[in-house]
Computed example of a mutant assay.
Amino acid sequence: MSITYVLVHGAWHTGQAWARVVPRLAASGRPVFTPTLTGYGETKHLLTPEVGLRTHTADVVRLLVEADLHDVVLVGHSYAGLVISAVANEVPERIARLVFLDAMVPVHGENGFDVMPIPRSMLGTGWRVPPLPELPAPFGLFGVTEPGDIAWLRTMLSDQSARCLEEPVALDNPAAAAIPRTHIHCTVKPDGFDRRPVPPRQPNGEPADVRELAAGHDCMITAPDELAGLLLDVGEPVGAGSMRS
């Protein structure tokens, strides 16, 4: 069985954010899934204070199980770094590689606020967390600066529940530590959004695999060719080494 790509969007976005990447990956013959997590986009009417990280973990686990997906390259953008970590803890046998795309990377017991404290200042007193505001160039709206692209992105954006950032990630399954990881860092970012250094070794003992992309945060919109190339590159050796009869 060949590998399958499952691309998980970040906070406030939808699965449509991957629309420019999907054809490039699909051209390689690999299946590609881009689920929209509960409470965003077409499901934003389902957003309640109870929707959180566990909800989104269950969304992705359900997809993997119901579609009977194995040898999955599981990509998590931004907040979805928490989601894919939790998914790996639950169904490690289905995952060939984790890809943290400009993403939050937790350790056991951490939540989103622990990993990146900045969003706490946005929370206010309510349970709804609105999308980040547009910033001056070159940062724009999540790194998107072209007016037409910004207009398209705005059609996807909606609030998220604070619980997404408050629920801790459980990473207590030893089998999940064996999954190889890749980190893709977007290099165009505002001050104050510094990420943690990636440890020199992965949890499985392999050397760290860190790639850089000269793009803003929403690189799937602004640099789809370059991103697809990186994903195909990290997926190729995994697929070759994890084929199932």
Rank of each mutant, 00 (worst) to 15 (best):
E167L: 04
T182R: 03
L232Q: 08
R62T: 15
P131S: 08
Q202H: 05
V238R: 11
H183A: 07
E212A: 12
I84W: 03
R30A: 15
L82V: 02
F33G: 02
P180D: 11
V65Q: 13
T55H: 00
P117V: 08
I84A: 04
D59R: 00
H183N: 08
P31R: 10
V115D: 11
V210W: 04
L157Q: 09
R195D: 14
V60K: 01
T34L: 02
T57V: 15
D159P: 02
T57W: 03
L157K: 03
P168D: 11
G29P: 04
H77Q: 14
M220P: 03
R195C: 08
T125N: 10
S2K: 10
P138K: 09
W152S: 10
P119D: 05
A170P: 03
M1N: 10
V107G: 14
P207S: 12
L165I: 05
I150G: 03
G41L: 04
E166S: 13
Q160D: 12
V210P: 02
V210R: 06
S158V: 00
V129C: 07
G235V: 05
H185I: 15
E110V: 12
G112Q: 07
G143S: 11
L47C: 06
P224E: 13
F193T: 13
V21Q: 05
N111I: 03
C164S: 08
P168S: 13
L63D: 00
A177M: 12
V105E: 07
P49N: 07
L132Q: 10
L153A: 11
A103W: 00
L74M: 06
M1R: 14
L82K: 01
E50G: 08
H217M: 06
V65M: 07
V198C: 11
G81K: 01
P119S: 13
L227V: 08
I184L: 09
P180R: 09
Y40L: 14
V51W: 00
I179E: 03
N173C: 09
V188I: 15
A27T: 06
G29E: 04
A151W: 04
A228F: 00
R97Q: 13
A177G: 08
D114R: 09
A223D: 01
A240R: 10
P199S: 14
Q160P: 00
R244A: 15
E90K: 08
A137Y: 11
T38D: 01
G112A: 10
G29Q: 06
P224L: 13
P117C: 14
R196N: 12
L74H: 02
D218E: 14
G124V: 05
F193R: 07
E146H: 08
L25I: 05
D218T: 09
V75P: 01
E93Q: 13
V107L: 12
E93R: 11
A58H: 09
P190N: 06
H77T: 01
P168V: 13
A137T: 14
A80I: 00
R244V: 14
G81D: 02
A178L: 15
G126V: 03
A26E: 13
P174D: 07
G112L: 15
S78R: 02
A176V: 04
L230K: 03
R30D: 12
T55W: 00
W152E: 12
S242D: 06
E134Y: 04
T14M: 06
H77C: 04
R120L: 11
R163Y: 01
W127S: 00
L132W: 05
C164W: 00
I221A: 13
S85R: 02
E50N: 13
